[in-house]
């Protein structure tokens, strides 16, 4: 019997020139907007978080309203490491936070991935609420509603201090995002990634051809959990603060909006949605401190009506339309 050809995940698909664009933009952002680097770092972190959601939502088709559970786990792990245990080295803190979030993802995933549809959605939500309540109760460790005070980061590599302007934070987040992105890209292009797409498109058929559906989904969920945990830890480390908000339903909702805005199942959707959403939010809030939420609402309605597949989907439709005109 013939085995499906094994593809080395690291060799699949050389970078196309267009793929370099967001990285060029992010890199030049450092020089073009020196006063906006704090916001920039937070955008990069949300890109990473949205990309993590894309792994399960866009590729494996797992609709989750509780992705903040994993983000928050990472944030609190990194924060508590520094504030209570005195472990303030950023890179190792990041790795530990990612692993802890991975374990939480594995355990939660093992339970909730037996279900599908609405049940699954409710369970992801329930996990977040449970974790948030736990963090609220464990005031001694988390600071409860006042937030976790006393997170202090050592300089990166012992040299680069986390400054008020966010220069270190921005480059740190960008580097981490790039590394994680390369890994994620390799994963979704591997045969494992193919099987996830298969599951998303037709789960029964995947069962029929002998794919271990549950195991593949759990694997995807765990990988996404590690990514979300790393994103959360980045936020905790660069802002030197953790609030209960990292575990909130709103954060789960926000990240889903960003992903949908950009386009799901493309990895790059996150690169469009997160900056678009956050820059708009920033500018609108400045324009009108009282009524800025209205602007955000209007944008969402417009997106759902006119670009249900997100900005990348819209771009693809436009390109297809231009080609048709040409021929």
């Amino acid at each position: 019997m013939e085995q499906p050809a094994y593809q080395n995940p690291l060799r699949t698909g050389a970078m196309r020139p267009a793929e370099l664009l967001p990285w060029l933009a992010a890199g030049s952002g450092f020089f073009l907007f020196p006063d906006y680097l704090q916001l920039g770092a937070q955008i990069l972190i949300m890109v990473l978080f949205a990309m993590s959601l894309d792994m399960i939502l866009g590729y494996a088709g797992i609709v989750s309203l509780g992705h903040a559970a994993l983000f928050g786990t990472g944030a609190y792990t990194a924060g508590i490491l520094s504030a209570h245990i005195g472990w303030s080295e950023p890179l190792s803190g990041l790795v530990i936070a990612g692993l802890v979030a991975g374990v939480v993802g594995l355990v939660c995933g093992a339970v909730i991935l037996y279900t599908r549809g609405l049940t699954l959605l409710m369970l992801t939500l329930a996990v977040t609420i449970l974790l948030q309540e736990l963090a609220n109760e464990q005031e001694h460790w988390t600071g409860g509603d006042d937030g976790l005070q006393g997170v202090v980061m050592q300089p990166l590599f012992g040299v680069f201090e986390f400054d008020l302007y966010g220069r270190t934070a921005y480059l740190y987040a960008l580097a981490v995002l790039f590394v994680v992105f390369l890994a994620a890209r390799a994963i979704v292009n591997s045969s494992f990634g193919q099987s996830l797409r298969g599951i998303r498109e037709n789960e029964r058929r995947m069962h029929a051809i002998g794919c271990p559906v549950y195991r593949q989904m759990l694997r995807a969920y765990t990988i996404a959990a590690v990514m979300a945990g790393v994103a959360g830890a980045l936020l905790a480390q660069t802002t030197e603060f953790v609030a209960l908000d990292v575990l909130s339903f709103e954060r789960s909702g926000d990240v889903m909006i960003m992903l949908i805005l950009g386009g799901t199942g493309r990895l790059y959707g996150a690169f469009i949605g997160a900056p678009l959403y956050m820059i708009l939010q920033d500018q609108l809030a400045k324009l009108s401190p009282e009524y800025w939420l209205f602007g955000i609402g209007a944008l969402l309605v417009a997106t759902i009506l006119y670009a249900p597949e997100g900005m990348l989907g819209l771009a693809e439709r436009l390109r297809a339309w231009v080609r048709r005109e040409d021929s």
Partner: peptide
């Protein structure tokens, strides 16, 4: 509202930007 992370970010932006 009572959102410490938002407040901290706004304070930083007001000072640096």
């Amino acid at each position: 509202g009572p959102k410490a992370d938002v407040a901290k970010r706004l304070a930083t932006e007001l000072i640096t930007r």
